[in-house]
Every structure is written in C-alpha cells, then in structure tokens.
Amino acid sequence: MVQGLPLNGKTAVIYGGAGNIGGAIAEAFVQAGAEVHLVGRTEATLKAKAGELGARYAVVDALDEGAVDRHAATFERLDISVNVTTDNDVQGTPMVEMSVEDYLSPVVSAVRSKFLTARAAARHMIRQKSGVILFFGGTGEASAHRRWQLGGLLAAFDAVESMRRQLAAELGPHGVRVVTLQTGGIPESIPAEHRAPIEADIVGETVLGRAATKADVGRTAVFVASDWGSAITGTQVNITCGSVLD
C-alpha cells in the first residue's frame, strides 16, 4: 500500500470486472490503492485480468442470489461495490417486431443483478457505517436517433436509476452513498469491426467534440468512490462529454 492514495486501504468488488468498463475501473482502483476483487462468470478472462492488475477474482453469476450472497460473506469489510455487468440486451430490431421476452430481458437482468449485488454490499456497509455503491449507465435526454432500435436497454437504465434513488434514500442515514456514472457511450468498449460509425454518432452528439474514454471512466469512478466525492450520493455523475446536458 502506498500512503496518500485516494483509495488506500479500501476493499472494492467489481461485478463484470474483466470486461472493458469493469477492467478500466479495476485498473484505476488498483492504481489508487484499493484491494480489488474482480467478479464474473468466465474464469479465463477473470484470471487473465486479475493477473494483469494484481487483483483477486471469483467466478460468480451476478444473477444468482445464493452465489452473490455467499461471495459477499467472504469479506470482512467491503467499501466499494461496482456493478457493470451486461444486461442481455437485444438491439437492432424495431420494437414492433420484438418479442416481449427480448424486450424485457435487459430490464429483468439489470434489475435483478443490480439489486442482488447492491443488497449484498449494503449489508456490509450498514454495519460499517460507510461505503459506496456504483452503477454505470444512467439516463438523460438523448436525441431521438440515439434512441433508435435499442430494445429494452433504456427501460433497463431507467429502472436501475429508480433503484439507485431509493437505495440512496434508504442507505444515506447509514453513511452509504449510491451513485451512477452516466455514460453517453464509450467507443473503446465497442468491437473494432463495429466501432467507426457508432463512434462518429457518439462524438457528433457531444459538445466537447470527443467521446469519453475508458480512462475517463476509471478516473471518475476513483473520484466518486473516494473521500473526494464524499458529498455525492443519489445522483448521476455526467461523463457524457456533453451529449446529455443537465
């Protein structure tokens, strides 16, 4: 441990920690002094990312109530919980042509996984009288064409934001903060073969003329999760480069 780092002595668990966004947050947390635990369903990718970062890992399905609770029970304390798991979204199909199962899939999986992981973390944090729960996604007044053929993804984001507000209200008196990192899209997280047109679309909506990077996400997550962000809860932190204006 290096003295003076913003997350020095903090224990963080990142669900979806081997993915693009989870990995970026994990890297930033490690650099900021946290003890980082990566969680996901695929051991090979978890093991590789954990080895790269000097983190720990566990194979856990964030949709499995028993598995989430058992894993959380292995911690003596838990200071930061981040859930950036993907939400089984089906995109590229008009809503009028979608099955109800495909539309609801991201809503159900997002609400279930975020609820289970937040609940498990909150039980530690209430006892500690401190902690931070982070989500990634958020909602805002995106332009009409940016909402095109996204299926149930935006409904899932809206549902999680409702959960975030309720959690913040219930957990605030215990010293626990709940925050969403609001994204307008991170081109680096998109497969290279599909990136160019989507990146152009994302950048075209911003006022800064650029898209947020994975490094931006990591640095913002460190700020919010650390004592530097101790007054922030119950809200979204906007990292859209101005594609969403408050």
Score class of each variant (00 low, 15 high):
G4M: 14
L7R: 02
K10V: 05
T11G: 10
T11P: 05
V13P: 06
A18Y: 02
N20I: 03
I21T: 14
A24K: 06
I25M: 05
E27M: 12
E27Y: 10
E27G: 04
F29N: 09
H37Q: 03
H37V: 12
V39K: 01
T42Q: 03
L46A: 01
A50K: 00
A58C: 04
A58T: 01
V60R: 09
A73F: 01
I80K: 02
V82K: 00
N83E: 12
V84H: 00
T85V: 15
T85H: 08
D87N: 14
N88L: 05
Q91N: 11
G92H: 14
T93F: 06
M98S: 03
M98R: 13
M98N: 09
E101L: 15
D102S: 13
P106H: 13
V111M: 09
S113H: 10
K114L: 06
K114N: 15
T117G: 14
A118W: 06
R119D: 07
R119T: 09
R127M: 06
Q128H: 06
Q128P: 09
K129E: 10
F136T: 12
G138R: 01
G140F: 09
E141M: 04
H145A: 08
R147W: 09
G151F: 03
G152M: 08
L153E: 05
F157C: 06
D158I: 07
V160N: 05
M163K: 04
E170I: 08
E170R: 07
P173W: 06
G175M: 05
V178G: 04
V179H: 00
L181A: 07
L181K: 03
P187M: 06
P187D: 15
R195T: 13
A196N: 06
A200L: 03
D201N: 12
D201G: 10
E205R: 07
A211S: 11
A211M: 07
A212S: 14
V217G: 01
R219N: 03
A221I: 02
V222S: 00
V222G: 01
V222Y: 00
A225R: 01
A225E: 01
S226W: 01
S226C: 14
D227Y: 08
D227F: 08
W228I: 08
A231L: 09
Q236T: 14
V237P: 04
